[in-house]
């Protein structure tokens, strides 16, 4: 019996130690001392590091451990290096990605978040980062929303057209938690068409041997995003105005020197998507 109590004690003790060690090193020194940041005295969640809460959504974000690549990963990496920070990813379920940035656990959320008015009330939206379009991916190249009626259709959770689609397509529409889950179903034949970000649809099509057609559908008054192409933002906490301003200015620098377009192109997106114009929140 005493042995067991001792064992429990040891376990508990090691739990406490491990929990203590598990914490992040708060005061890690900046990556290199000689670097001069574009903006001085920025505060980040972990000093010396720009932390992005994210999830895997190719070609925008590819997460491998704490390394983030893809188009948004590349842009964030540029921003981080302009500020003499190193980029770290905090991969999460989509249910926690934005909250993590909102609460300041991470500095900035990534993964193709559209700039909408409803979201701007809760978080600061840095951007626009790049412009996006709806992509309809199907076997026959359907190009209008009316053509899609009556067919099993998929979309991904979080897209602003989901509510409008529900009204048009009703129970024919399935909402997927991740693009991967949706494309698995398209492959398996559970759905015939899918709506996704144009870039993500193109990427998925390439991954699957270009057997589908990706089309940007004709504008339709029932779907706001088809009339006004959505812009992508980086959701950030409302409590770190300095960092938010810095990110916005860094984005402008990257846009002006052409790096932004280059990163988009490197990741299979169109370089012209970098020319977003002014931020326009979708109502």
């Amino acid at each position: 019996m005493y042995k067991k109590i001792a064992l429990a004690g040891v376990l508990l003790l090691s739990a406490a130690t491990l929990a203590a060690c598990g914490g992040n090193d708060q005061n890690a020194p900046a990556a290199n001392a000689g670097c001069k940041p574009a903006h001085a005295n920025l505060k980040t969640a972990k000093s010396g590091t720009l932390t992005t809460s994210t999830y895997t959504f190719p070609p925008f974000t590819n997460v491998n451990g704490t390394t983030v690549t893809g188009a948004e990963g590349g842009i964030l990496k540029e921003i981080a290096s302009m500020e003499c920070l190193s980029l770290t990813g905090q991969p999460l379920d989509t249910g926690s990605v934005v909250t993590a940035a909102q609460n300041g656990r991470a500095d900035i959320a990534s993964g193709n978040w559209y700039c909408t008015a409803a979201r701007a009330k809760v978080v600061d939206l840095a951007g626009p980062v790049y412009g996006d379009q709806i992509g309809i991916i199907s076997t026959n190249g359907a190009s209008t929303f009316t053509e899609l009626q009556g067919r099993a259709m998929g979309t991904v959770d979080g897209y602003l057209w989901n509510e409008e689609f529900k009204k048009i397509y009703g129970s024919d529409l399935k909402v997927y938690p991740t693009p991967t889950a949706m494309y698995n179903d398209l492959k398996a034949g559970r759905i015939e068409v899918a709506a996704d970000s144009f870039g993500s649809a193109t990427y998925a099509n390439k991954q699957n041997g270009d057997k589908w057609k990706v089309v940007n559908p004709a504008a339709d008054s029932r779907v706001a995003a088809s009339k006004q192409p959505p812009q992508v933002c980086f959701p950030m906490s409302k409590n770190n105005q300095a960092l938010y301003n810095a990110v916005n200015e860094d984005l402008k620098t990257l846009r002006d020197n052409g790096k932004l377009a280059k990163i988009l192109e490197d990741n299979g997106l169109s370089g012209s998507a970098a020319n977003t114009g002014e931020l326009q929140l979708i109502q």
Partner: peptide, 23 residues
């Protein structure tokens, strides 16, 4: 999980360093 991870920081963002993913 969602509540413990996101809840405390809702009230005090500095709790993010206490409630790490692992903890």
């Amino acid at each position: 999980l969602f509540l413990i991870y996101n809840g405390p920081t809702q009230f005090d963002p500095s709790l993010g360093t206490v409630f790490t993913s692992w903890r």
